[in-house]
Design a protein around this nucleic acid. Structure first.
Lengths: 188, 188
DNA sequence: GCAGTTTTTTGATTTAAATCAAGAACTGCT
DNA sequence: AGCAGTTCTTGATTTAAATCAAAAAACTGC
C-alpha cells in the first residue's frame, strides 16, 4: 500500500475500491532538489500527492522573497488558482529536497468524478479544510506575537523545524531570520 | 430579479432555470443590528446570501477581540468549519447594521445538488475562490507594512471604509485603531 | 579535506507600530 | 436638548521586531 492510499483512506475515509481507482490515475513523478513544480506566472495544471521530500511555496517581491508555505509528505501540492480558475500562479513552488510525488494532470483530475462518484464531496472537504486552515493562519498573523506564532507552528508542524532552513521558516511565520534565531535560542 | 439572482448569474454564470430553483431554496431572513448570525462555539448550520447591511466575523481572545472579516452585500455568510465539518465555530458572526439575508439550512443546502446537478462544480469554484483570497491575505500580512495593507484593503473594498467603525477595520488589517487613524489622516 | 560560499548566530542600533494618556467628536438615550 | 458612554484623534513614550554589521558555524563542490 502506498502512502497515497493510506492518506486517502485515513483522511477521506475512502473504500478500497475507490482508492484503487484513484491511485491508478496518479502517476509517480520525481522532483530533484531545486526543481520547480511550478513557476510564478505559469498556470498550474497538475495536482500531486507528496510522498517524500520538502517543497516550498514562495513569492518574489521587489524587496524580498516571501515563503508562503512549506509542504511535507502527506500533503497535496497544487495551485488552486490555476487548477480551478486557469489563472497564472502568484507564487513559485520549488523542491527543497528530492521529492517523490504522485501526480495527476488537470484533464484527468477533472474526470475523477466520473470514476469515483463521491469525488466531488471528497474534494469539497479537502478544499474547505484548506480554507479553514487559512482562516486560522490569518487569525494568528492578526493577533499573535512572533513568539506565539513560532509556538503555534511548532505545535502544528514540528517536523519541518529540523529540516527546513531557518530563513524560510522565519519568512513563513512573518518574521526575520534574526528574530527566529533568537526565539529558537530562548526556547532551549 | 433579486440581488441573489444577479449574483448567481454574474458570479457563477448560472442559467435562469437554475437560478429559479436555487432562489426558491433560500428564504428571506432579517438580522437586527447587534444580532448574532452565529456565536463562537456553536455549529453553523446555515448559509446565507447577504442582500444588505454589514456583518462582522470576530474572535474573542483573553486580551482582545480580533475582527477576522467584514462581510458586505453580495457575499455569502457562513462558517465552513460548521457547514462542512460540523465543527463548532471559532468566531462569532454579528450584524453591525440591520441586514436582509436569504438563508438556507444545511439540510437543504446539502440537497442542492439533487436540484441543480451543476451545484457541486459551482460550489467548488466558490470555496476555491475563498481559499485563494485567503492566500492573498496571508501574503499581505507576511510581507506588507501597515500602510501597504491599508492601501490593499482600500483598493479591494473601498465601500467598507466609510461604513465600518475604524477599530474593526484596524483589527481586520492587523493594526491598532491609533495606527489606522494616523494612516488615514496621512492619506488626505 | 579544504577553500569558498551560504546560512545562522550574536550584538548594537533603529524604527514601525504598540501602548499609554488625554482631549475631541460622535451616539444614543431619556 | 443635554448628559453618559463610546469611539476617534492626537501627542508622548515604550517596545517588539527590523535592520545593520560582523563573527561563527554549516554546508558545497572540487
Amino acid at each position: 500500500m502506498t502512502d497515497l492510499a493510506d492518506y486517502l483512506k485515513s483522511y477521506f475515509g475512502m473504500e478500497e475500491r475507490e482508492i484503487d481507482i484513484i491511485r491508478e490515475c496518479f502517476l509517480p513523478q520525481t522532483l530533484r532538489k531545486h526543481d520547480y513544480f511550478l513557476k510564478a506566472g505559469q498556470v498550474c495544471h497538475t495536482m500531486s500527492f507528496q510522498r517524500s521530500g520538502l517543497v516550498r511555496y514562495y513569492m518574489d517581491t521587489p524587496e524580498k522573497e516571501v515563503t508562503q508555505w512549506i509542504s511535507t509528505p502527506g500533503y497535496f501540492i497544487t495551485d488552486l488558482a490555476g487548477l480551478v480558475f486557469d489563472k497564472p500562479a502568484r507564487y513559485s513552488i520549488q523542491a527543497l529536497e528530492d521529492c517523490e510525488l504522485f501526480s495527476i494532470d488537470k484533464r484527468d483530475y477533472d474526470r475523477l468524478a466520473e470514476k469515483v462518484p463521491r469525488w466531488p464531496q471528497l474534494e469539497r472537504r479537502f478544499i474547505a479544510r484548506c480554507f479553514t486552515y487559512m482562516e486560522d493562519r490569518v487569525f494568528g498573523l492578526l493577533s499573535m506575537t512572533a513568539e506565539q506564532r513560532y509556538k503555534w507552528l511548532f505545535d502544528q508542524h514540528p517536523a519541518i523545524f529540523n529540516q527546513v532552513p531557518l530563513q524560510y521558516l522565519a519568512s513563513m511565520m512573518g518574521m526575520t531570520p534574526e528574530t527566529l534565531s533568537r526565539i529558537r535560542k530562548k526556547q532551549l
